[in-house]
Every structure is written in structure tokens, then in C-alpha cells.
Nucleic acid binder design. Structure first.
Length: 930
RNA sequence: GCGGGUAUGGUGAAAUUGGUAUACACACUAGAUUUAGGAUCUAGUAUCUUUACAGAUAUGGGGGUUCAAAUCCCUUUACCCGCACCA
């Protein structure tokens, strides 16, 4: 009887859906187990073969846990707001709302075909207003919060305002960028907008100036992802950094907690390392450099290398620094000057690789030598909002060195480096001859004693920018009353419908598409959205035109799965109490920092208000490896915009060309590009000149991860069609260890397909299903139990590739033994169902079972009852294996040794030499050294 | 530049976590079967020496610890991933 996977798979997928086999409820008697895959983004490309690896692995684990009697939820949904959809819409003219629906539908079809035990009743979608209503609600909660350092938690802003009214900010220990002190009277005298300006320094969701990547030619703000070598990937136009007022979330307030929380979770070490370095706690010292013109004004410069202080020959104020907005700095250089500088630097372009900067005309005094040190403004060394200024030691810092060379600044060596361990100070007065450790403590002591500096701990973690100049994101529920941001509490605040193309490329200002919406103003009285032209600033006010970033919705989605349809609240308390948090989170390592930091922050914020009980969202994380594949790269001349065949590219002039990824489906014969077809891909390619080599245009092929942004994805559909989902599932697991990255290769899939056929045929004799009802032999049972044990161990250690080999070995043995016994085959079918649920379900049904195999218990393993009395010792000579000798397991070492010395085979091997020593490791190995 | 990871036959990979290296597959070779095959079955398949028996050498390279190393330590090379380019 033929293995007809099409028929079998369709049949059971319909059955599972109809009977709601995978839908879960709270069962207080059962232990819960929450498995989650990282949120998929439904792009227009559909799934690629890399995505399912995580889904399949977690499904195998979910089915395994379920078979052990745990109440497993394994939900899925879609992170559906975001840039790719918006861009695709601009290109095609299909509204993102519709586009998203189409994409989700397609993803769903692809996912359903995999036979994963997803609980589809819990499906959610971030662009659905029933979901983002709560994202907006949480944003408002953050807006109305400040961080109390005394209690180490977020609290209501009302408490803070109340305190200001009574005592000013004297007694407040808040996490804030506001450093001045004020009294209650001073506070009360302030005007509303002044008050709000101060409060912005405390709020967890707050407004501040942050930089964006601005591409004037495209008239839009670009993501880092859309830029290569400071040119836009689309069109190759220059990109500038521009600062604008944006919403941020004060994640930095949670730095310490985010760091400490890592001790409580089970993440891979490399992931923890990434998070730690991202949070970047450093203890160092803040050194005061006073201004030459006015010694009262001091720059406070943080460093972890104070022992290089004598080598400081210039100071840099980062162009993006908050410091440039402060009054303090306007005393150094006036505001007009800063604006001019900014304009100059912007036009110079903010290519970070290019050395750019400008001298402020000011000097600070070295705290110890009192020498004059010039102050520059630049974004070359490090452009960071949180830094006020940087001390530069060109002798020992590569970038400072380059900068010093260009501007003719003195270079002073202060370290003698003989090897990585032998470093000591030179040219540094009292530090001379000291090693790094000692000089650190010595200079720290002196600086602190003389009040030239203070102890300081810094975190690298920055506040997260929360505004996007995009249409397709959650609207920020804020309107502006006389420039004061006010919250909209009637939620959800829906996106206005906009005709396409709503993003007019001819705009020269940085604007969000919503600034062009006709129906985007807030009627305060009637609490509703009205036409933009009705704004009168009395009752009708402008609405916020930025939208939220796509990580907003994905920062708390795992909670919503616990209670996806709740209309009254984001999560019912009783449900939260049962499901708590995620037990196993499966996803790519690329989310190690961004998403995981944001989600952990968001979780902690909700915990501060008692809305959830746990401190961490994810108890355990495993990362699946990436799929690597050969991408296709073509080269575009940066200035003249023509494309050149890779075969003609002069490698010396490589820097004149921008690398562009093109879709691998336009490649024929290894590396030849189909010019006619590729011109239809992108309009800019259609209008460009291609320089051919002998009538051919070739591209460069490089190994990269499979990703839609690299246009190298391979769609799994043709694999399901040819081999079926069960083969595909097994094959993806057979590729190798889950966490390892692997080069995509379809070559070995026939082996898996043959194996499934073999498995199927094993149950069918001459076209009829057949099992033997006799009791199995000891040998047969032993093989079964050993296999169960091995598979269990492998699953426990998340080694999903190993059980497949075990299945093969097991089946080969049964075939050799002609064993078709029910008591052997039933347990193995249960194990098999984790990997290949459809074929197993069909066989289970043929075995006469009435209930789905999903409800079968994990098979018992009675191996101990069968264990043999003897152990077959491998005998090695000087570590080299020769043969085996059997001894009783209980035989003591002394007796074994005696027997070994009289053994003929061993005597023969020793050739009359006397063994120096014999190592006997009980029930493991014998090593004879001679 | 910094941080993280990987390396075992022609290929994907196993190795009870320091104890018989290359299980299980793919591919290849030979044979059987079928009208034929991309189907099925059997045997062989790390490298070198050897007709064979057998022996030697092999886990990216070099060194070390150990009775014993793919596994631990030092060093080095290549490739992949990430980045807020630590100043």
C-alpha cells in the first residue's frame, strides 16, 4: 500500500481543527507548560525554510511535554505592524490594512500545513485594534509614570506632582535627567508648560530630541536596515542624521534590574553575555575639566581609564549629545554657533567613517597639569545622546589618533605596552612605572581627594526611541494642547484611513505620513477624531503624528495569549495566575538584545503596578541556528549609479561601488543575472545602465543568513508539495543540532522520505495493515527500551536531530528481526508522532485507537528490569582499542586484573613485555599501559 | 575595531559529556530484481601501505595536561552572525 502523504496529511489536519485537539484551557489539576515561538512578522514573501525550524522543534517539545501529562499551550499570532508592509504598499498601491490580511492568510496556510500543535483559538495580531488598544493603554501608563529609585519601581506621576507641590523635588530620588533643585513654591509659580517640561524629565514615556536617518532625495526617514555605506539601498542616495523631537521610553531606569534579572533565568550563556554587554554596566570615574574662560563651568567626563589622564590632548562633545541643548554649553559656544556647526557637519554628511569635526574655539584645563586642552564638536568618535563629552587619548585610541592626525593635535604616549599583561604608565608624573590596576586606584584616590572627580557607574543601555515617522504602526494616543502633550483615554485610537500613495516623495521636511492625514485632529469636548482643518487650538487640537515602533506590540504579546479575547482588560488576573510566564521561548539569536531587552523592560514595568506577578517574562530561551544560503550581490557605482558586471569589477575600485542584494530568483547558471527579468523587479533598475561582460551580467555570490532583507529566501511550499509535511518536519530536524547555523541544502531529503516510506511499509504487508499480537521477546523489549531512553534524553537536552537516527536504527533492527509486535510498535509510534504527527496519527488509527495519538502517554521504559549481568569491556592498549572481554558487572577490580594478566589474548598482545599499569574503570573500559 | 559562534570522511552529521572516533543518512561503486526507471533489495565505501591477513595515520593547524582528548588548557588560521565602531 502506497504512502499517500497528501491524503493522510489533509485528513488529519481537518480532524485536528474540527475536534480542536490542540486548544487548551486552564486545568488546575495539571501543571502548565507555556511554549512560545518568537512572534512572526507576516511579510509578503511568505515563510522561508528557516522559519519552521524553530516551530517544528518547539512543536516536538510541546508534544513531548504534553505526552507527559502537562497542560501545554503553544500559541501563535502575528506581529503585523511594520515597515516592510508599508513599503510594499507604497510600491503596489494596496493599502497596508489589506496587504496585512493577505500576508497573514498566506502565513497561516503555510503554518497549518506543518501540522504544528498551535492553539489557533489564541491567535492574535498586533495591528488589530482589540490588541493595540492595550498597547496604547500601556503607553499612557508609562506616560503617567516616573521611576522611584528609593522603591526601585515605577509609580504614578500624580505622586510625584503631589510631592512637588509639598516639598519641591528635594526629597525625591527619581531616575531623571533633571538635575536642578526646586522648592514647592518655585514649582507652584511655574506655568503649565514649564511644569510639563520638567515632568518630561521624569516620565517613563517622554519627549526628547533624538537623531534619525534622513534621506532628502527619498523624502523619508530610513531605518538602519535600509542604509548601506551611508547611502540608501533604494536608489543609493545620501543619508544624513537629523535631530527631531521624539518619544522615548526610559529603559535606562531599569538597567540594574535588567542586569540582575539575568541571574534568575535560564538563557544560553552567549545570549546572557550579549545582554550584559548591551546593558554595559561600568564603574569608573567622572573627571571635572573646568573651562579656561570661566573656571566655574566644568565638563564632567566619564572614563573607565583614568590612568590615561595625562595623555588627554583634546575633548569631544558628541554632536548628538543632550549637552548641546543645555545652557551650560551655550556658555561655551553660543547657540547660533552650535546651529552653524550642526549645519556644517550635516552638510559634510554624517558618514561615521569619515573624520569630521569642528573646533569650538574653547579650551578646558587639565585638572592635574592645568594645561589647555581644545574642545571639539564631532560625531566621529562617538555620537551618543547620553554623553556630555569624551576625553581623547590619541596615543592609545585608534579613532582619537585618526582625529588628532587630521586636526594636527598633539599625541602623547602615556602607556608602555610590552605585552597584553605588561602595561605600565609613562610620561604620567606620579603614575610612572605603575601597572594598570595600581595606577587606576592611585589616580582615582587623588582625583577624589582633590575633588577633581567623583565615583560613577555608567550604563551603556540607552533610552529606547519610541517614535516612528511611519503610517503603519500603532497611533500614539496623545494630542497637543498648546504644545503640552495630553493623553487620549478613549481607546483604541484608530489609524485614519489614508489614500495611497499617502507618502508624497516631494516633501522636503521630515514628516510622518500622518501629518498629511485629512482626518487627524482631536475634539477634546466630544472625545473624537475630527477633520484636521478644524483645528482651532481651543477645543480641537492636533494629534500626535508619529506612530509606535514595531517592537511596541511584540513587547507584551506573550501575556495576551493567556487571555486573547478579553474585552475588559489586557489580561484576566486568574488566567495570569495560572499561566504566569513563558517556560520555553524559542527563536533566533538576532533578537538577543533588541526584543529581549524591550520585552523584559515592559514586563518589569507591568510588574511594578502589580498587573502581573512574575519578574521575568521568559524562564528559558533556546536559539535556533540560522540557515545560511548564497546571496546574490550586484555592484552599483556610488556616483554615476550604473551597475557593473562582477566579472568586470576592478577590486581596487571596489569602494566606488555600493553592494546591492538582489533576489536570488533572478540568477541563472550559478552567478549570471537575468537582466530582463531583474528590470521588472524594481523600477530604479529598469532605468539604470548595466555594463555587461561579453553579453553577460554576473553577480557575486556570498554566504549569508537567509532573510527577506537579503532577498535570498527559499520558500518551503514546493517541499511540502513534493514530499509532504512529515518529511519536511523530519528533514529540518535532521539537518543538525537546533542551535547550530547550517547551510541550506535539499540533497539529503530523499533519505528522510525513503525512511518514512519504509516506516509506512513496515506496517503493511501485501497491501494490508498488519501487526503481530504476540508478546515480545526480551531482546525486542530491550531494543525498545533503549530507544525510548535515548530519545527521552535527547529531547530533554533539546537535541532534536538525534532521535531521528534512533528511529532509523530501531526500524532497521526490527526489519532484520522481522518483529511486527504491537507492544513494540505502539510505543514507538507515539514517539514518532512528535516528529511526524500525520503518518503516526494514521497508523495509530489503523492500530484501532479511537482517540488521537496526541492524547497518548509517553511510553514507559522498564530497561532496568532487563539489564544484563555482564559487561563487555573494551580493552585498549596504550589507549588504542583492540578487542572486548566480558566480565560480570559485580566483578571487583582486583579479580578482573588477575584474570586479565592470565588472558591468552592479552599475553599475545604484550609480546612478553610486562604491563606497567592496568587501568580498570568499572563497567566502562580497560586500558593496559606497557 | 569590539563582542559572540563554528570547524570531525566526497556531503549532512553521531560519539553515553574525558573512555571503542566516524553510528545514522546522503552520494558513490558493484550486484540482484523489474520492459524500463528517479522504485526496491544486498554488499562495499576516512586516508595510506597490503592480493589478503594486518598495520600505520587521521576530528582546521601547532603545542600542552592525562593511563586515556573531537571533548580540558594555550596558541593560530578560515568562515558565519551581531553591533550602541569604549572613545
Amino acid at each position: 500500500m502506497e504512502y499517500n502523504f497528501n491524503k493522510i496529511e489533509k485528513k488529519w489536519q481537518i480532524y485536528w481543527k474540527k475536534k480542536k485537539i490542540f486548544n487548551k484551557k486552564i486545568l488546575y489539576k495539571k501543571k502548565k507548560y507555556y511554549i512560545l515561538n518568537m512572534f512572526p512578522y507576516p511579510s509578503g514573501e511568505g515563510l522561508h525554510v528557516g522559519h519552521p525550524i524553530g516551530y517544528i522543534a518547539s512543536d516536538i517539545y510541546a508534544r513531548y511535554k504534553n505526552s507527559q501529562g502537562e497542560n501545554v499551550i503553544n500559541p501563535i499570532g502575528f506581529d503585523s505592524f511594520g515597515l516592510p508592509t508599508e513599503q510594499y504598499s507604497i510600491q503596489t498601491g494596496i493599502h497596508p490594512n489589506i496587504m496585512t490580511k493577505i500576508n497573514i492568510k498566506r502565513y497561516k496556510i503555510q503554518l497549518l500545513r506543518l501540522g504544528i500543535s498551535f492553539d489557533w483559538d489564541r491567535e492574535l495580531n498586533t495591528s488589530d485594534s482589540t490588541y493595540f488598544k492595550w498597547t496604547q493603554w500601556m503607553f499612557i501608563k508609562m506616560f503617567n509614570s516616573w521611576y522611584d529609585k528609593k522603591l526601585e519601581k515605577a509609580r504614578s506621576i500624580k505622586i510625584l506632582i503631589n510631592e512637588f507641590n509639598f516639598n519641591g523635588n528635594r526629597n525625591i530620588n527619581a531616575f531623571s535627567t533633571f538635575k536642578k533643585r526646586f522648592s514647592a513654591d518655585e514649582w507652584k509659580k511655574k506655568k503649565n508648560f514649564e511644569k510639563e517640561k520638567i515632568l518630561q524629565n521624569y516620565r517613563i514615556a517622554f519627549l526628547s530630541k533624538r537623531s534619525v536617518n534622513w534621506c532628502p532625495k527619498l523624502g523619508t526617514v530610513l531605518a538602519n536596515d535600509e542604509i548601506k555605506e551611508n547611502l540608501s539601498k533604494r536608489g543609493g542616495y545620501p543619508v544624513y542624521k537629523k535631530r527631531m523631537l521624539q518619544w522615548s521610553l526610559r529603559i535606562s531606569a531599569y538597567s540594574e534590574r535588567l542586569l540582575n534579572g539575568l541571574n534568575k533565568v535560564n538563557y544560553p550563556d552567549n545570549l546572557k553575555k550579549s545582554q550584559k554587554s548591551w546593558i554595559g554596566k561600568e564603574s569608573g570615574i567622572k573627571i571635572f575639566f573646568s573651562l579656561e574662560k570661566n573656571e566655574k563651568i566644568k565638563l564632567e567626563i566619564f572614563t573607565i581609564k583614568p590612568y590615561m589622564l595625562f595623555g588627554v590632548t583634546f575633548i569631544i562633545i558628541p554632536l548628538g549629545s543632550y549637552f548641546l541643548e543645555r545652557k551650560k554649553i551655550t556658555n561655551i559656544v553660543d547657540k547660533q554657533y552650535i546651529n552653524d556647526v550642526k549645519k556644517y557637519l550635516l552638510n559634510f554628511s554624517l558618514k561615521e567613517k569619515e573624520i569630521s569635526g569642528i573646533f569650538t574655539g574653547n579650551y578646558v584645563l587639565h585638572p592635574l597639569t592645568k594645561k589647555k586642552i581644545p574642545v571639539y564638536i564631532s560625531s566621529f568618535i562617538k555620537d551618543d545622546y547620553n554623553l556630555n563629552s569624551i576625553m581623547c587619548v590619541p596615543a592609545h585610541e585608534i579613532k582619537s589618533y585618526k582625529f588628532a592626525k587630521k586636526f594636527g593635535i598633539k599625541i602623547l604616549e602615556v602607556l608602555s605596552i610590552k605585552s597584553s599583561e605588561k602595561i605600565f604608565c609613562i610620561n604620567s608624573s606620579f603614575l610612572n612605572g605603575l601597572n594598570l590596576k595600581n595606577s587606576f586606584f592611585f589616580i582615582k584616590k587623588i582625583l577624589l581627594n582633590k575633588n577633581f572627580g567623583k565615583k560613577s557607574i555608567s550604563f551603556k543601555l540607552k533610552d529606547a526611541v519610541f517614535s516612528r515617522q511611519r503610517y503603519w504602526g500603532e497611533p500614539i494616543p496623545i494630542y497637543y494642547e498648546n504644545n503640552i502633550p495630553k493623553t487620549i483615554n478613549k481607546l483604541p485610537l484608530l489609524l485614519p484611513y489614508m489614500d495611497l500613495p499617502y507618502m508624497d516623495i516631494s516633501h522636503n521636511e521630515i514628516n510622518s505620513p500622518l501629518t498629511r492625514a485629512k482626518f487627524w485632529a482631536w475634539d477634546k469636548k466630544n472625545k473624537k477624531i475630527v477633520y484636521t482643518n478644524l483645528i482651532n487650538k481651543k477645543t480641537i487640537f492636533p494629534l500626535e503624528t508619529n506612530t509606535m515602533p514595531s517592537w511596541a506590540g511584540s513587547s507584551w504579546y506573550y501575556f495576551r495569549y493567556m487571555d486573547p479575547k478579553n474585552k475588559n482588560f489586557f489580561l484576566n488576573k486568574r488566567k495570569e495566575n495560572y499561566w504566569k510566564n513563558v517556560d520555553l521561548y524559542v527563536g533566533g539569536i538576532e533578537h538577543a538584545t533588541g526584543h529581549l531587552i524591550y520585552a523584559r523592560f515592559w514586563h518589569k514595568f507591568l510588574k511594578d503596578y502589580g498587573l502581573v506577578n512574575s519578574e521575568e517574562p521568559f524562564k528559558k530561551i533556546i536559539n535556533q541556528g540560522m540557515i545560511l544560503v548564497k546571496s546574490a550581490i550586484i555592484y552599483r557605482n556610488k556616483k554615476k549609479k550604473y551597475y557593473i558586471s562582477y566579472s568586470l569589477l576592478n577590486l581596487k575600485k571596489k569602494n566606488d561601488f555600493q553592494k546591492i542584494n538582489i533576489d536570488i530568483k533572478y540568477i541563472k547558471n550559478k552567478n549570471e543575472v537575468d537582466i530582463e527579468k531583474i528590470k521588472t523587479w524594481r523600477s530604479e533598475l529598469n532605468n539604470s545602465k548595466f555594463i555587461l561582460d561579453n553579453g553577460k551580467f554576473t553577480c557575486n555570490r556570498i554566504l549569508e543568513k537567509m532573510s527577506k532583507s537579503k532577498y535570498n529566501v527559499i520558500n518551503p511550499d514546493f517541499i511540502y508539495n513534493k514530499y509532504g509535511a512529515d518529511t519536511f518536519r523530519m528533514y529540518e530536524m535532521f539537518l543538525g543540532p537546533l542551535e547550530k547555523s547550517k547551510i541550506w541544502n535539499i540533497k539529503n531529503i530523499d533519505g528522510i522520505y525513503n525512511f518514512l516510506k519504509k516506516f509506512w511499509n513496515f506496517f503493511h504487508k501485501k497491501g494490508k495493515f498488519y501487526v503481530d499480537e504476540n508478546y515480545p521477546s526480551k531482546e525486542e523489549l530491550e531494543i525498545l527500551y533503549k530507544t525510548i531512553k535515548k530519545i527521552k534524553n535527547s529531547l530533554e537536552s533539546f537535541s532534536f536531530n538525534i532521535p531521528i537516527s534512533e528511529f532509523m536504527i530501531f526500524l532497521n533492527k526490527l526489519i532484520r528481526m522481522k518483529c511486527y509486535k504491537r507492544q513494540i510498535l505502539e510505543p514507538i509510534t507515539i514517539l514518532f508522532s512528535f516528529y511526524a504527527p500525520h503518518i503516526s496519527e494514521e497508523i495509530w488509527y489503523k492500530l484501532g485507537k479511537k482517540k488521537s495519538i496526541y492524547f497518548a502517554n509517553f511510553p514507559k521504559n522498564n530497561l532496568n528490569s532487563l539489564l544484563e549481568k555482564y559487561f563487555n569491556y573494551p580493552v585498549t592498549f596504550n589507549g588504542k582499542f583492540r578487542f572486548k572481554i566480558k566480565f560480570k558487572k559485580s566483578e571487583p577490580i582486583q579479580k578482573i586484573e588477575k584474570k586479565l594478566l592470565n588472558n591468552e589474548k592479552i599475553i599475545l598482545f604484550l609480546k612478553n613485555k610486562k604491563p606497567k599499569k592496568i587501568f580498570i574503570i568499572l563497567n566502562k573500559i580497560i586500558n593496559i599501559v606497557f
